[in-house]
């Protein structure tokens, strides 16, 4: 990475290892349901237990997302959301929090239209730590991945149940920060995670990479989050939080009173699941974390 001193993602995972627990990663769409409410949510997430924040970049055609996150993108866009506003939101969050890593997640077209070089500069200036761009597989690394890595932004790749052993090395090349294992074949917020299958997949991934492994796409409840936290380095929850935003907004997308508190309460319950996961049931998947503890 360009600037190791400011590598918040590596520092955060090192801290988690020292604590002997998995991380809790939250996903909300930037600007959902409006800029101010979204900023209040994001500012509240670390105190609610988020170890790492993923922020969705709103897009009109989110092809890998289920109905909950599709609707969140539409609310954000309707309220004036844009890539520029997303970066402003990160900047405003960074004013009060210099430790929590922020990863932007979304689709390539808004970045392409913004201009790749300008985007990388502005993202770094705002305090973004990494990027997850769903529709940029390794085959298209020259577009954004390589220039981003060069500039010091992590490029976090998705590995999926269809990523077989032959393809995995390609997925791991030019990946940094952590690996995001998509626990289901499907779109966000639909199927439920099968924690046993995930445990097997995560241990296979560990044979090929030293990077931390986060798991997401099917985790809805504190119990599911805990099950994942026993085998992976972090659990990602998106649709469950985004559903709270949907419930807290009226039909036109305006935030009703109590929306922020409701989302943060949901985050707190999930975070508790993650934090307590290994206290009541240490599992075989802990092997790398426990061996790394003393280092």
């Amino acid at each position: 990475m360009g600037n190791a001193a400011a590598d918040r993602i590596a520092e955060r995972f090192a801290g988690l290892r020292a604590e002997g627990r998995a991380g809790f990663v939250t996903f909300v769409t930037a600007g959902d349901p409006d800029f101010e409410t979204s900023l209040a949510i994001v500012k509240g997430l670390p105190a609610a237990g988020a170890d790492l924040i993923e922020l969705g970049m709103p897009f009109s055609d989110p092809m890998a997302d289920g109905p909950a996150i599709q609707a969140s993108s539409q609310r954000a866009l309707k309220a004036g959301g844009s890539l520029k506003r997303t970066l402003e939101l990160v900047g405003a969050f960074r004013d009060g929090d210099d430790g929590t890593p922020v990863v932007l997640m979304g689709y390539y077209n808004p970045i392409y239209i913004y201009g790749v070089e300008r985007f990388i500069d502005d993202a770094l200036a705002a305090g973004v730590d990494g990027l997850i761009v769903v529709d940029l597989p390794p085959e298209e690394d020259e577009e954004l991945c390589l220039p981003a890595l060069e500039a010091g932004l992590h490029f976090i790749r998705l590995a999926t149940p269809t990523t077989d052993e032959k393809r995995l090395p390609k997925v791991l090349t030019n990946t940094s920060g952590f690996i995001y294992f998509v626990s289901i074949t499907g779109i966000t917020g639909t199927k439920s995670v099968d924690s046993e299958a995930v445990a097997g997949a995560v241990s296979r991934l560990r044979e090929s990479t030293e990077l931390p492994i986060a798991v997401g796409f099917g985790i809805k409840t504190p119990e599911q989050a805990a099950a994942i936290a026993r085998v992976a380095d972090a659990a990602v929850v998106g649709s469950a939080l985004v559903n709270r935003i949907a419930e807290g907004a009226d039909a036109s997308g305006e935030a009703k009173a109590g929306l922020v508190a409701s989302v943060l309460e949901c985050a707190r319950e999930l975070a508790e699941g993650v934090r307590n996961a290994r206290l009541d049931a240490p599992a075989a998947g802990d092997r790398r974390l426990s061996s790394a503890k003393g280092s």
């Binding site: 769903v134 597989p137 998509v182």
Partner: peptide, 9 residues
């Protein structure tokens, strides 16, 4: 080929 990793294989 701008698709999600799940579809790449």
């Amino acid at each position: 080929r701008y698709v999600a990793e799940t579809l790449m294989p």
